[in-house]
Design a binder for these strands. Structure first.
Lengths: 245, 245, 245, 245
DNA sequence: GTGGTCTAGACCACT
DNA sequence: GTGGTCTAGACCACT
């Protein structure tokens, strides 16, 4: 007799996979409301507690959304891009992703992003980028490092957004999310003029010179990443783990 | 008057952010064991239940791992790449990511992957790829469609792995994870000979012809993606939501 | 591992601390009008109910004042000294403050008050005190015990007021507020002539004999307090808790 | 016909005064549990909202305590000394209490406190004070200003505690609570050696020289208060309102 | 011994 | 009125 390994599924897992499957099949769509906790507990013949653990874990991966109050309840989420970022962050904290890998991946993906953008950029998109650079310049002159970092990261997010591709946006945001902490602690890159580089990049974009634009971006990112890696090494420790506050 | 939105923090969120922060700072590292649930509840001055919800959500994003039994306990995870895939999948199910975006992003990222690989490929890597293609060929001849799909997807994962960059591996796996379901249901691409295309790709790689390799990959992926998109359209509905089982 | 107690903030607390902070910083001053409840609810992104609870608790500690009607609204209070008295009363009812502690503290603080007053008393102030004593004498002769008690307590408040120091006024009022209940129920002190003692006190004050004035006050207060404590003991029970109506 | 002004009592006030009255009479004592919200609403024939507002305001003045969970409910509080401090703070923020009044009142009350302590101080109490001064000295040497401020304030609280009189403790804490913010922002007093002054004070206490002890305390407090008042004036604005963060 | 599950009951929040 | 959040304490299942 062939016996298959028994895999005890925890109660909450059985619940969450059942709900997930219904979402996957399209029976449940974004915005749909599930029965309340008490009813779910009854339907699954488990305690409310087990239901809550299941809902909680589905909430944390962005499939559900729990809302309190009279109009509250359990809803199928409309997507939670931060869930991807959080999971990626976990990989960085404990999963053996090094800063070097992170920056390399970012360089490759952002290069691809920029190539896509070149073919789709219109006047409105260019204006957004130019506004960002102008604001970053003002922040730099005002010595407002916090605003400067935020605006610089925003520039890269903008590029991703201009591809019109949500997947690339989500992935880029996840990577930038982790790099943001470095940027804020490591302080400004001194060996190059970021604003001037951005200006050159925008000129290339406006003129449709894709290869020059990519080259400019690569040069700039390489400098920034060298800066991060140097700072990390300077601290000696902590290949895994981020610099403390 | 400037008033900011009130954000009440739930107990389990306060707990998980406190633990996450200690992981981020490097105080807790992969493999470390946390106090048990009862002790955590006492330390945080909350119920065990609140602790469990926090642990559960951290487990689902891949930061912790819970193990039952006498030698069990709560451990800092060594990374859970599937967490990224799950979160991405959530975005696809409910978050408005279309198949078109998914395939476009995949094309761009895999192209970048291939370029990286070209510069680093050694004999061992090439052998792995060739073995994969050989096995896929046998599966095709044997008419074993399941094995064929698995091996084809494995080919793309192999490419990512050969970059040596975990971030790219994780991202590619997340994308392939979603595409796998399509591949299995849509059936084999008929308008092209995948095995032949792979062979050409490997020849280019072996000869160091990066641009030709990329061109071959792009051509192949475009065909596959057209195939998926066509199948989806054929079904009429369900831009969001996957075809049922 | 160092873990700190989790403190979840309730919605109404988040609201009240945000408004309190703006008052503390001086952004909001006495008399200023806040947006109405509906607007506040919108600004904080909570229900009107949560806003009301926050406003209510701030009203009860004397930071806000809610006024009904067409010209009504939520206003920053100009101070509510009774709030201190109420909180102190709470400590007496349930917080383990004994009558003995209360009377001791009162003796010490009122002594300090009298010393301050000695240095600042002018003719107008003396006249106020003398008027009070005269009125108390008339009430005593008329056998109007209620008026007598009120006027006697008023005498002590007057002393505090004559320091010109609001803090001392508020603290003294808080203590007298609690003692008033005793005075009204315990009935008049019989072992001494309060009016005569007051007259001596005023003569010392007029003559600038600070130490004699203080001695007279102390003697008088001690007698009264003995009276209270004796009455309480007579009832047997209720160190905490007040004698019933 | 004599008509008395109509005073519409709001629903929540009627509720809270009814409960307060029962506490005052001793029917309800610290630790007692009240019926739950729904039952109270029914008993008072009002909405649960009105009940909640009443409970909330009684919680903020320290008469009740609300606890969540299975063993939760509405309980008569065992006293909340911070309620007095909060109310006093409100008076300072908006009620026209000036820093000058605050420091004067503190000087008077703490002087009275010290006099009381002189008559009751035992070896254990002296040891507590000496330990505090020693710790403050270490913090000063280590340049840890935060710890220094905390320890210095703690010294004054200790003095109050050593009177054994809860009223004085509560009042002193209320005053110190407001002064703490100044101490932290204004920075250390430079014109005098606080530690040396404390040492002299303790020597006087140990030797039973009450007047010298008081004189030393007064001198020290005057210097500190001058420091605060000078800093406030330096800022130009904000007699009401505290210096911003 | 530790995570997993369960129960009953209460506050918290929203409309 | 409805539903989410939290609590205390118990037993079960696994190693």
């Amino acid at each position: 007799m062939r016996l298959t390994e028994v895999k005890t599924q925890r109660a909450f897992e059985a619940i969450s996979s059942q709900i997930t499957e219904r979402i996957r099949r399209g029976d449940l769509r974004a915005g749909d409301r599930l029965p309340n906790e008490r009813e779910l507990a009854q339907a699954f013949a488990v305690s409310r507690h087990a239901v809550r653990e299941a809902l909680r874990s589905m909430e944390s991966v962005g499939l559900l959304h729990l809302r309190k109050g009279a109009t509250g309840g359990v809803f199928v989420s409309g997507g939670r891009p931060e869930a991807v970022a959080e999971a990626m962050r976990g990989m960085f904290y404990v999963g053996g992703i090094s800063l070097a890998e992170l920056t390399e991946a970012r360089l490759e993906i952002e290069t691809a992003v920029l190539r896509l953008v070149c073919g789709r950029l219109d006047e409105a998109g260019l204006a957004l980028l130019e506004d960002n650079v102008a604001a970053a310049e003002r922040a730099t002159e005002a010595g407002d490092n916090g605003a400067k970092v935020t605006l610089n990261i925003r520039f890269h997010e903008l590029l991703a957004t201009l591809t019109g591709n949500t997947v690339l946006v989500v992935v880029m945001k996840a990577l930038l999310d982790i790099l943001r902490e470095f940027a804020q602690r490591v302080g400004p890159v001194t060996e190059m003029d970021v604003i001037a580089s951005r200006r050159r990049l925008l000129r290339h974009l406006r003129a449709g010179r894709q290869d020059s634009a990519v080259a400019e971006l690569v040069r700039s990112l390489r400098a920034v990443h060298r800066h991060y890696l140097g700072a990390l090494k300077g601290r000696g420790a902590a290949a895994p783990g981020m610099p403390g506050p």
